[in-house]
């Protein structure tokens, strides 16, 4: 039976090649980097944009047609806006509060932060600074202010290599993220790995599977008609496999985000990316 199955796989691959035309990954023009860490299970690291066809790629690459740029521009505005009892903007307090400039932050989150005492996402770092350094109310996750601010900060590192740390105080969060990545969840009983490690480059019905990197978030999605965070994407994936969605900012989503960011270490920040 096994031999017959392999023969069937061969047949399937022929079909796959014909269907997959039009993406840089299949045409051999993708930017492929080697993992920066020997613990990374991927033999090649490829940005999600190289699994997309030209219409989406062109929308992302041309800043005048990239719909995510409006959100970045809004973030630039509120970055300078004074808010809270300390009479300061995030721009005033960021470097001392986060401990790094915005361009460095763009490639470094999720990250262990001494003040917070745990690994936090960029959203959580923004709110930490708003609450402790500005005396301002935290932003709500997935609302315009938070999406604008995260998109703006990430955009400061656009083109720079992702470089999150999983060692030292981040190690336990990395281990949790790895555990979640390989855990089957939901009624469809699949892990992240089934699609994004074992089957990247293959179609799942009309969608070509990528490696699931998050270097383009916050990302503009045609389906969303707007920009969304990694945690919104996780919730969508969880819904697709009929699993319980976790809350925005849930520690397990932060752990998964750290793990995914690390698998893509070395890829450049593409915020705001565009997807269908």
């Amino acid at each position: 039976m096994r031999n017959i199955m392999y023969a069937a796989v061969g047949l399937m691959m022929t079909t796959a090649t014909a269907m997959a035309a039009g993406t840089p990954y299949h045409e051999g023009s993708a930017t492929i980097i080697e993992p920066t860490d020997e613990r990374n299970p991927l033999a090649e690291v490829v940005s999600g944009i190289d699994f997309r066809k030209s219409m989406i790629r062109e929308m992302q690459e041309d800043e005048f047609s990239n719909p995510g740029m409006i959100v970045v521009d809004y973030g630039a505005e509120i970055w300078e806006q004074v808010d809270g009892t300390a009479g300061k903007s995030l721009s005033d307090v960021w470097e001392s509060c986060a401990g790094m400039d915005a361009a460095t932050a763009a490639v470094s989150y999720p990250r262990y932060h001494d003040g917070a005492g745990k690994v936090i996402s960029l959203e959580q770092q923004i709110n930490y600074c708003r609450e402790t350094a500005m005396g301002a109310e935290p932003y709500k996750w997935e609302k315009a202010d938070m999406l604008g601010m995260t998109a703006f900060i990430r955009y400061q590192g656009n083109g720079e290599a992702i470089n999150v740390s999983i060692d030292g105080p981040a190690a336990a969060t990395y281990e949790r993220g790895k555990e979640l990545y390989y855990q089957r969840v939901g009624q469809l009983d699949m892990s992240c790995a089934h699609c994004h490690e074992d089957n990247y480059g293959n179609y799942i019905r009309a969608d070509m599977l990528s490696q699931g990197h998050i270097n383009g978030f916050p990302t503009y999605r045609v389906k969303w008609n707007g920009v969304g965070s990694t945690h919104r994407r996780f919730r969508g994936c969880n819904g697709n496999i009929r699993a319980t969605k976790l809350a925005y900012g849930h520690e397990d989503y932060v752990a998964l985000e750290l793990y995914l960011a690390w698998r893509g270490n070395g890829l450049t920040v593409e915020t705001p990316a565009v997807r269908q």
Partner: peptide
């Protein structure tokens, strides 16, 4: 990766609808 189409037990975090 194939789902089990006639099985109700042994799932992690199934959506409560299912």
């Amino acid at each position: 990766m194939m789902p089990s189409f006639y099985r109700t037990t042994g799932y992690n975090r199934p959506d409560k609808k299912f």
